[in-house]
């Protein structure tokens, strides 16, 4: 019986595998050893001429060889591929230290962030945002807020007016929103009013003709000085952190009595004033048409000041120059 030596063929196959240089070589090897014209196929054709016993025996021998070649080929092919991909990945050498996708400005202004945060803090205890016009009447900005004629805030050196009779002006404080809100809403009132205010100051490191305040007002039954104190202590803790100490010192605002300023103990132990507050003056209630025995408190906080304290910003000018070198830091 003309039998081929399957071991020799397999050995030849293994030798060929060692010569593989590229993935296509596997196809050639497969063709060579398993293809139509391969020795194996030729031998298979000759099987029919053998008797049944020989045919079965020789057939199995050829089938085993075929299986061995196929599985070895697959195994080697997989190995080769994975090695090949690894090598090709090793050839990918982009330098990750370069920032091709630049940091474009894509943020809210730092003042907006601070206002959002303050609004969130107060919204959590039931305060809603209220707004009012920036170009206001002197009545809403001063008279209704119990500011006497002689008060220095009314000076043209402090306040920007829109007419020569000094009846219209650019609001100098967001407290105007208190007045507008109470004129249109009955108690209970829990509002915060973030917004722009204006003063007659040149833009420099510590002054700006435009800046932002957040006014707060609560009018409800039985609100007392203790409620004011607790509310602002809550705010300071939420905004600056639980460990900060606060103190209240007496102050004067025409529209509150008693009036206070809130100071916080900052890093180096220095006390920084961060907001003004007080119990709403009965004259304010009278002007907006509330009962004069209404009870409530109001507070006002400077947004730029909060931002400057928190981030250590040195120039108020930075907020309004809009240089991206500044804006994208926050």
């Amino acid at each position: 019986m003309p039998e081929v030596n399957t071991d020799k063929i397999f050995a030849a196959f293994l030798l060929r595998l060692e010569e593989v240089a590229k993935i296509e070589d596997f196809d050639d090897i497969e063709k060579e050893f398993l293809g139509k014209n391969s020795l194996l196929s030729e031998e298979r054709k000759s099987l029919s001429s053998l008797n049944e016993v020989s045919r079965k025996k020789y057939g199995k021998l050829l089938q085993d060889l075929s299986n061995n070649i196929t599985s070895k080929l697959d195994e080697e092919k997989t190995k080769f591929k994975s090695k090949f991909f690894i090598q090709s990945e090793l050839n990918d050498n982009n330098d990750i230290s370069i920032d091709w996708y630049k940091n474009l400005g894509s943020k809210n202004h730092v003042l907006t962030n601070v206002m959002n945060e303050v609004v969130d803090i107060f919204a959590a205890i039931g305060y809603t945002v209220s707004t009012g016009p920036e170009a206001e009447t002197s009545w809403h900005n001063f008279d209704a807020l119990n500011t006497p004629d002689w008060h220095p805030a009314r000076y043209e050196s402090d306040t920007l007016y829109l007419d020569n009779k000094l009846e219209k002006l650019l609001r100098t404080q967001t407290s105007t929103v208190q007045v507008r809100h109470m004129q249109n809403n009955k108690p209970p009132v829990y509002i915060v009013a973030p917004g722009r205010v204006y003063r007659s100051d040149q833009l420099d490191a510590t002054h700006s003709p435009v800046f932002h305040q957040i006014e707060g007002l609560a009018v409800d039954e039985n609100l007392t000085f203790s409620d004011l104190k607790g509310t602002l202590e809550y705010f300071v803790k939420e905004f600056f952190g639980k460990d900060l100490k606060t103190k209240f010192i007496p102050h004067f605002f025409p529209f509150t009595e008693p009036s206070a300023e809130v100071l916080v103990s900052w890093k180096d132990g220095e006390w920084l004033e961060i907001l003004g507050c007080g119990m709403v003056d009965p004259n304010v209630f009278k002007h907006v048409g509330y009962d004069t025995d209404s009870q409530g408190f109001a507070f006002g906080v400077g947004v730029e000041r909060l931002a400057m304290i928190r981030y250590g910003i040195d120039h108020i000018k930075n907020f309004y120059e809009n240089d991206l070198r500044f804006l994208r830091q926050f």
Partner: peptide, 18 residues
């Protein structure tokens, strides 16, 4: 001022910013 107690009154509509 610092000898007063601190209490925290709250409005009815929480987390309603308008």
């Amino acid at each position: 001022f610092n000898n007063f107690e601190s209490t925290l009154p709250q409005g009815i509509h929480k987390n309603n910013k308008g």
